[in-house]
Design a protein around this nucleic acid. Structure first.
Lengths: 340, 340
DNA sequence: ACTCCATCGGGAACCGGTTCCAGGTCTCAC
DNA sequence: GTGAGACCTGGAACCGGTTCCCGATGGAGT
């Protein structure tokens, strides 16, 4: 492995000139630059990013903490982040935070702190004030995706609002027996996404003066989770809802599969609406509120790099609310038995 | 930010002693160690991994190159790798390699080379001899998952064999009009997974003396891909196969959804078998050859760390073939019209 | 009493870059 | 002719640790 000193020697210049020539910072004559570059390629020289980081204090590496990888929304966000970072010449170091508190502590107290990352993106993780403060004390820019975090810029969709919108869509179609199948209200990791979606749902019902006694089921945020609830809820034709607002498209799809299996016609006997814009939604004719997680990831990177590269730049607005698109397909329709 | 010298000063010892006390290498008396540790916690000191890497030449960071994130098998492998690395105190730097040749070159020529990673895991990427040689020249251990790469240890399932096994399962049930719905035979990234599965499939047919004229359809490796092919292939009852060997569970599930939609009974009129052990397989009653991608990732990390931490240790066997489990569910059954 | 060895601690040389500073040349304007 | 300023280069300090080498201490063995 050749080092800068070798390159300098071959090119017949000093280390400092070689460094300037290769990094493009500072004055170097064209001829010298060429000689250095030739020497570098001849030797197959590549800078040691460790050495460079040590002196500059910047690693060109961003840490990403994320609770799941194998779930559409998260994978999509991650891909968006990865592409944007690579394009900007940054590395991405991945930390998956399970519900394990010890592991979480280790990631924050040990991994993220060692001057190894320049900044952190936190995806759908409700950082504690202590965690935020620890990272900020290190002067590391921090951006959140998927929920609001006090004191740091973050971006997400408006969970209360989309839930309200989805529910209003069902209400406007004449549905009254509406159920929300969503996530665990008390889950720690996912911000308050689940409870916010429930809130929007109930607000819409309340505003419409609709009272539903059995209005919620908790499901795993997956197709299997939706399927299991679907089978459980849709069996009895006398009690089953005429419309379901699912907490995400995976759940909605699971419910759809269960309904089809039970011979329940969608949207004839049951309307279903989801949230996400999952690629499978189209195949199942699912009406959904589409968001673009990949774009969210890219946007977060943009905010971060802006802070990193113009240290003077004020940190961006506290919280950005991103748009969703109501995509109506064939899974929602007017209630058939128009009379209640 | 406090540095080692601060800790040493507070503890009343030299930098070298402080370093020894904190790293646990070399002789330090218990009392001294305690004083140093106290000083360190008091100051909130954390080593600079950059500085440490510069002098030791080891980063405790592993690079992972992977073509997809948002696909079950890959996400699962990635999770397995991530957990295993974190547990061992290693970081994971993620590089997603799309089909973009330029990006791929950049990752290999620039990102992976800067002494930033100690080792590389390549998931389902058919490395060129040049790429392998470049990494080996840097002395970086390298392990492949998902296919055989000449000259480096790798692990995967036996794609020819599982395809043969799946096909034989269908043959033994009396099926003769069998179709394989698989991936693009010429795809660059995915080793020769696709063509190997086709090979095993044809071998099984040939060995059984079965000739099928329309035996293959190419599909995107996703539920949507399987669904599209399913609709296209299953429409005509006179020409449609009685059994399908799908290249992966996602395709098989897509075909299942299409079949249900067309009112085709599985397994009455159509048997379907997949590969993977996707969590959705159970819900769809899908017979499959289950592999454990997460375990594969963990195993790869194990091989890698062994090489890293016992540099003397010989690199492991060239290629490990991992087992799969034929999991029979309700999607495969004996052909109904027993006489052909 | 003397050697030997294990234990403990400090000084200083690194690791491989970046950057500040100083010195020198050349051009241009006054 | 002189000063200002842009351009070019080398020397040396520095980033923050790790580790080699050496000296000191003290208990055990003979």
């Amino acid at each position: 492995m050749s080092i800068l000193a070798d390159v300098a020697r071959i090119a017949g210049v000093s280390k400092s000139t070689a460094s300037r020539a290769l990094s493009g910072r500072g004055y170097v004559s064209d001829g010298t630059r060429r000689r250095v570059e030739d020497a570098a390629t001849e030797l197959g020289y590549v800078v040691s990013s460790t050495a460079a980081s040590l002196v500059t204090g910047r690693t060109r590496n961003v840490g990403v903490v994320i609770p799941y990888i194998n779930r559409w929304y998260f994978a999509e966000v991650l891909e968006g982040i990865e592409s944007a970072l690579i394009r900007a010449g940054y590395d991405l170091t991945l930390y998956r935070l399970s519900t394990d508190r010890d592991l979480r502590r280790r990631v924050f107290d040990y991994f993220l702190v060692r001057k190894r990352v320049d900044a952190v993106i936190s995806v759908a993780i409700d950082l504690s004030p202590h965690e935020v403060q620890m990272l900020q004390a290190l002067g590391k820019p921090l951006v959140g995706i998927g929920g609001r975090i006090d004191g740091i810029p973050s971006l997400s969709i408006d969970d209360v609002e989309i839930a309200r919108l989805a529910t209003e869509h069902l209400l406007s179609l004449g549905h009254r027996r509406i159920m929300h199948v969503g996530g665990d209200q008390n889950e720690q990791m996912d911000f308050r996404v689940h409870s916010q979606r429930y809130t929007g749902f109930s607000q819409a019902l309340r505003d419409a003066g609709v009272i539903v006694d059995d209005d919620f089921r908790q499901a795993d945020f997956s197709i299997e989770g939706g399927y299991a609830i679907g089978l459980a809820v849709l069996g009895d034709p006398r009690t089953r809802p005429t419309a379901i607002f699912a907490g995400c498209d995976e759940i909605a799809i699971g419910i759809t599969v269960a309904a089809r299996q039970l011979g329940i016609n969608i949207p004839g006997e049951l309307s279903v609406i989801g949230v996400d814009g999952h690629p499978l939604a189209e195949m199942f004719g699912l009406t959904t509120l589409a968001q673009q997680p990949g774009a969210q990831g890219a946007r977060a990177v943009e905010l971060l790099l802006n802070q990193l590269e113009h240290a003077d730049a004020a940190p961006p607005d506290e919280h950005l609310l991103l748009p969703t698109a109501l995509t109506v397909r064939s899974s929602t329709a007017a209630r058939r038995d128009a009379a209640v």
